[in-house]
Write a protein that binds this DNA or RNA. Sequence first.
DNA 1: CTGAAAGCGCTAACAA
DNA 2: TTGTTAGCGCTTTCAG
Lengths: 340, 340
Amino acid sequence: MSKKTTIYDIAKALNITVSTVSRALSGFPAISEATRKAVIETAEKLNYSPNKLASALKSGKTHIIGVIVPSVQAHFFASIIHCIESGLKDSGYRVIIYQSNESVENEINGVKTLLEAQVDGIMASMSLETQDVSHFEEIVKQNKPLILFDRVNETLAVPTITLDDFKAGYVATQHLIDQGYRKIAFMTTIHQIKIFNDRLEGYKTALKDNNLPVLDEHIIFGGLSIKDGRFGAGKLMRSKNKPDAVVAGDDFTALGVIKKLKEINQTPPEVGVIGFANEAFSAYITPNLSTIDQHASQMGMECAKMFLKMINQQNPYQDTKHIVLDPTVIERQSTTKLPS
Amino acid sequence: MSKKTTIYDIAKALNITVSTVSRALSGFPAISEATRKAVIETAEKLNYSPNKLASALKSGKTHIIGVIVPSVQAHFFASIIHCIESGLKDSGYRVIIYQSNESVENEINGVKTLLEAQVDGIMASMSLETQDVSHFEEIVKQNKPLILFDRVNETLAVPTITLDDFKAGYVATQHLIDQGYRKIAFMTTIHQIKIFNDRLEGYKTALKDNNLPVLDEHIIFGGLSIKDGRFGAGKLMRSKNKPDAVVAGDDFTALGVIKKLKEINQTPPEVGVIGFANEAFSAYITPNLSTIDQHASQMGMECAKMFLKMINQQNPYQDTKHIVLDPTVIERQSTTKLPS
DNA sequence: CTGAAAGCGCTAACAA
DNA sequence: TTGTTAGCGCTTTCAG
């Protein structure tokens, strides 16, 4: 109880100096086995717990890295974090998570907080709101590793790990075409985020490559949520030019679309629906939702690997790479068009 | 770039001392407005960012609190964390998350890591494996707030926030009985965790109160997952004494049960199924899953409130409370028995 | 192999 | 209202 034991207590108990204790504890080689053993034993006896703060203050390394994500509630981000953690664990790095909740303000605060906490590096996936990215520049200025994943920004000269989002939009659309759908709508966010724009381009290109028309009325800019999905689907299905399939911005939106379609008795796969992200529920709703797998675990692993590489270079930003992963179509019932 | 600016740089620039700078920056009252303004301006000009590590080392307060959960992938825990964060934000506390992944070893490591990081307090929900809780005692010894939520341990004399799990088991069972089910099975974890035992007792008591027999063969001890749900349901439905409803240990397990029941053409609500936790997907699977809401947000809020109370007492453990929340049945299709 | 001592950046008595 | 000064607990030269 009472006061915490420090290396001074250990030193006093053994009649040696703190420097010796420090060295013994940190595995310094030039220490006699006897001393080391004595120190370790005494440390245990006194229930010593190192104050990492002090050590970090002195050494300048906290061995903590900050991860900023929109929300851990999305399965995709939770999985990434999980993989970052396990990829970094053996190197002694801990992860602290900061949620932006899709707000730039929170994101700015997150960077500030993490930097003040002296994290050794930051990984981030940007909020939907984020346009200006100057808050991230501070990290680079401090010469600390910054890695952007999934929702990235091109103006920042930092490593990125992303999905090939153009391809994601393309293969999702092509999959629907292959299944026999011809009038394919696309629902996306109103925010100007690279990955969503890329997907949209992929969608358009796929249509063109298949000699299908790109119709403005089939492209819905809105929010991404179950509610937005219902709303958008309602709008689409009431229009004169009803689509026969929908590429939804994410699985939540796709779920909303499905709910609306069920209500109006056009249950998929009568109208095809495909989402993005392969959320936990997607395989279990009825009909099962086809979706694009974004390889969260691989993305997390790459983040961890990249960080370790950067931290071991004098200049983390020498030789900055952009890793792009390939999307995979997960075909389920919602796009398995029946012969009509 | 280059070197980080410290309060010394600001002091030098203004020809005052660091103490004045420190005071100006921390909102100390006895400071002339002129000085304060000058300091703040200079700080901004020099792009000053405080080193919280140094401040924490000196003051003994990091304003960081650690939260240990089995996994953020469970919607329930993600929601709790979310609410803890928002409940603490205004008081200037930040949350760092540590996942045990249901392993005691990780949990022990988590406590150690967080303590070494000098967090101001810890909130935890125990892993399924955890039996011995001595690693938590260290937190209490250091006189730092420890709050246990949901998966708690009674031997620790610390505040707890839980659901009334006996009641949860009871109302889940009673709900099925009210719907007309009579042969109700119960699937739970093999691990000796209080909340699961309590639910089991609630289940048994509900049966007794309704003059229904408690059958050993209707109580399945296993894991909690989709796979375990399928497996357990298979076992139950092959037995000579087939149940007509199942209380599953959580929503994932319930989902597994539903999948198996569909396969053998006894789709709920023909056989009733109810889960626990109201996961994100539960409302969207087919049939919609009835479940017990565990009031994650309220639990998170109470954690935050409790922490603030404890941190403001000289002895955090004076007047230790146990807050118990009431479970709520969320009735959906999976238990809406049709008249036969 | 071990000790002495400086100092990481900040806070907080105590003085002035 | 401001300055002086002594650390917080640890690491790390530099000597010995």
